[in-house]
Structure formats: structure tokens, C-alpha cells
Write a protein that binds this DNA or RNA. Structure first.
Lengths: 108, 108
DNA sequence: TCCGGTACCTCGTACCACTGAGTACCACTA
DNA sequence: TAGTGGTACTCAGTGGTACGAGGTACCGGA
């Protein structure tokens, strides 16, 4: 599937939050996780900008750890504000997706 | 539900296409239809920019008709290109929404 | 005659994903 | 030891999209 970028606006950040919430992980791994999920065109640069935004907005806790095979990694974990943000993201997603599905099926 | 604007990026245009596909209608009515669907914060200015974009991209056929209660209306109907665009929109939506739901439920 | 509802348009802004270039660390190899 | 490829992060700039605020205009009723 190609050219999903516009449709991912507003949702990709939530996806990253969700991934971080399940396990403490780092940018490069998050990118591959998203690619494995089917978002094959999402590149690392995009993920890093999201992570920097999350950090700037105080939604994550960052821990730098050395790696066996490369430069040190920045591990991300959600804090309380991040968990709240994730909850509101899923609430919004639920709201929007049900309504769009309803529209698709000709409902009102 | 408030502040859905980021999440609606890339999907609102598809919603408008879907609405037009079911019946030939005009901007003001489309706005109210979207509001009734639950997208209460979508304003007419947004819908008109979308409609102008659809027209510029050659996805719709436009017919101006007088109204009994106000200025003339511009009625929009999908052409073949518009129907193709709508089909790819739903394909993208299916693709993205199933994968996000999968992520939500902890799958891979 | 003014006001509210209908109907359309436009300019500027903010936000977000994306791009591309750069930096840097490490292991392997020719 | 120089080169290559994979890992890992940063940042400035771009383009697309929804939105806010304002304007124009038509109509009927108080």
C-alpha cells in the first residue's frame, strides 16, 4: 500500500505511543516495528521527529544505554502524561473510526 | 469529541467523496451532513477548500442551480476519476484502520 | 430596514509526516 | 588500514491539510 502519509497524520504519533507503552524501546526498533505492522514507507527520520516531539512535550522518559552493535540507544518509556495522551488518542481513534465506518455503510 | 483535526487529515476528503457519491449535493449541505455524522467541529470553510480541490483535480462534475431560499448552489457529482479515487480511499482506509486496530489489540 | 439563515469564497496560520543531509559508532574484510 | 555496510540519532526545510476569521451575496420575515 503506497502513499498513506496524509492518512497517517495524527495517528502515527499515537501508534508510536502505543508501541512505547508495551515495552521500553528505541527509535530504530520502533521504525522496524512500524514497517512490520504494514507501514512499510515510514522511515526512521519520521520516527525520530515524533520521538523528539514526545520528549519536548514531556510525554516520555528517556534513558540512554550503550549498544553492542552501534552507537548508544535512547530508550523511551511513557510517563503519566504519556499514558493519558495515549488514552485520549485511542478515544479519538474509536470515535473517528466508528463514524467513518458508519458513513461507509451508508448509515447516518 | 474535540480537536480531531489532525486525525481527520487525509480522511475528510474521502468522507466528502463518499457523501457526494450517494447523492448529488452541495457544500453547505455537506457541512451539515458531516456535523450530523459527529464531526461537529468541521466548518464550511474546510469543506469548500476540499470541494475546490476536488474540482481542481478533476474528480467531480459541478452544476450550478438556483435555490428557493438563498443564493444559487453548486451541486457536485462524482465522475469516473472521482469514483476511482473513492475506491482507493476506502482501500487505504481499510488497510490503515485494520492495522491500527491490530496494534491496539497487541498483535503484530 | 435590519436581521438571521442560507450559500459561497479566500487568505493566513498551525500542525504534521516526510525528505535529505549530516554526524557518529561498530564489525567485518580486502 | 582503509573501505563498506548496518546501526543510531539530529535538524532544517518542504508540502499538504484542516482550521480560523473575515468577506460577499441572496432571500424572507419582523
Amino acid at each position: 500500500m503506497e502513499d498513506l502519509t496524509e492518512m497517517l497524520k495524527g495517528t502515527l504519533e499515537g501508534c508510536v505511543l502505543e508501541i512505547i507503552s508495551t515495552e521500553e524501546t528505541y527509535g530504530y526498533a520502533i521504525t522496524r516495528r512500524l514497517n512490520d505492522l504494514g507501514f512499510t514507507d515510514v522511515i526512521d527520520g519520521t520516527v525520530y521527529t515524533i520521538l523528539l516531539r514526545l520528549e519536548r512535550n514531556g510525554l516520555v522518559q528517556v534513558t540512554k544505554r550503550p549498544s553492542e552493535l552501534g552507537p548508544p540507544r535512547k530508550f523511551y518509556a511513557l510517563n503519566d502524561a504519556g499514558r493519558r495522551e495515549l488514552a485520549t488518542f485511542w478515544a479519538k481513534w474509536q470515535y473517528v473510526s466508528t463514524r467513518i465506518d458508519r458513513l461507509r455503510k451508508g448509515g447516518r
